[in-house]
């Protein structure tokens, strides 16, 4: 198979970028999209041109490092798939393929197709945890959890943090990511004590990072390689509004003097 690649090249954050065109020839349909780019990079290197920088690590669809907007869709055209598990057999011979980085002001481009997703980490750091330190813990079977609840929590927790939801959202919102993280713990008994403080803190951090707002397009759900449902966004909205309107403000304020 032969392809024409139209790839976004950019020296670094802040410097302007532009598309470059490359031709790749004799690509096997069994080759993955990233392996096709690997081959391109080898050819570029051999001819003395700088290879295209793109993120990837596990190459089995779980680390969330790979990105790429391929022909206008984050992670390409196949639903429920990361770029690293996208194969060239999904494209038609001779096709022009446009490859762009995630576009979001919260994810500045670092080089070519590589973006900085540390905003996601800061959202997690704001409250995406149960405050529990290492050491002896209660016997886990002392708190039974309905399997349906555990499964739903896992549906949310299986988010790989790739950022495709942000890339896909016409508003550049991080609602699917944040809501998945919030809902994972909000569903489980372990997450209850900090439930409302958590949602408030994480939403505030999300907004501070400069993500857009949700307009219920559901593009995020369609782009999510783990097919996480937008139902979690409604869930988070509910928790957030409840925290804002009903729960005590700064419940820990009085505890700090202890």
């Amino acid at each position: 198979m032969n392809f024409v690649l139209k790839i976004w090249r950019q020296e670094g954050t802040g410097s302007g970028g532009a598309f470059s065109h490359y031709e790749v020839r004799d690509v096997e349909p069994t080759v993955s999209f990233l392996e096709m780019l690997d081959t391109l990079n080898e050819e570029l290197t051999e001819s003395g041109q700088e290879p295209v920088a793109f993120d990837s690590d596990c190459r089995e669809g779980i680390c969330g490092m790979c990105s790429l907007v391929i022909n206008g869709q984050p992670h390409g055209p196949i639903p429920g798939t990361t770029t690293c598990q996208l194969y060239m057999r999904h494209f038609s011979d001779g096709e022009e393929i446009t490859i762009e980085p995630w576009r979001s002001s919260a994810f500045p481009v670092l080089r070519d197709l590589v973006v900085d997703r540390s905003a996601f980490d800061r959202v997690m750091q704001a409250g995406g945890y149960v405050t529990v330190h290492s050491g002896p813990k209660p016997e886990p079977n002392s708190i039974p959890i309905e399997p349906e609840v555990a499964e739903e929590a896992l549906d949310a927790a299986c988010c790989i943090g790739c950022g495709a939801c942000v890339a896909a959202c016409p508003n550049g919102a991080a609602m699917l990511y944040t809501s998945a993280k919030v809902s994972h713990l909000a569903l489980l008994p372990q997450g209850q004590p900090e439930r409302y403080a958590r949602v408030t803190a994480m939403v505030e951090q999300m907004e501070e990072e400069g993500f857009g707002s949700c307009r219920n397009y559901a593009e995020c759900e369609a782009a999510c390689p783990k097919e996480i449902s937008i139902k979690f966004i409604g869930r988070m909205n509910r928790d957030y509004l409840r925290a804002a309107l009903r729960e005590p403000i700064n419940p820990r304020g009085k505890m700090e003097s202890q």
Binding site: K6, W8, F19, V69, N71, G72, Q73, P77, T98, E100, R103, S104, S105, A106, A168, P170, N171, G172, A173, G210, F211, G212, S213, R215, Y217, A218, E219, E221, A222, A223
Partner: peptide, 16 residues
């Protein structure tokens, strides 16, 4: 929302 995506995609395909 506008500020959240200062550079638009060159090519865009909506699904949902």
């Amino acid at each position: 929302n506008h500020a959240a995506r200062p550079i638009r995609y060159h090519r865009r395909r909506f699904v949902e």
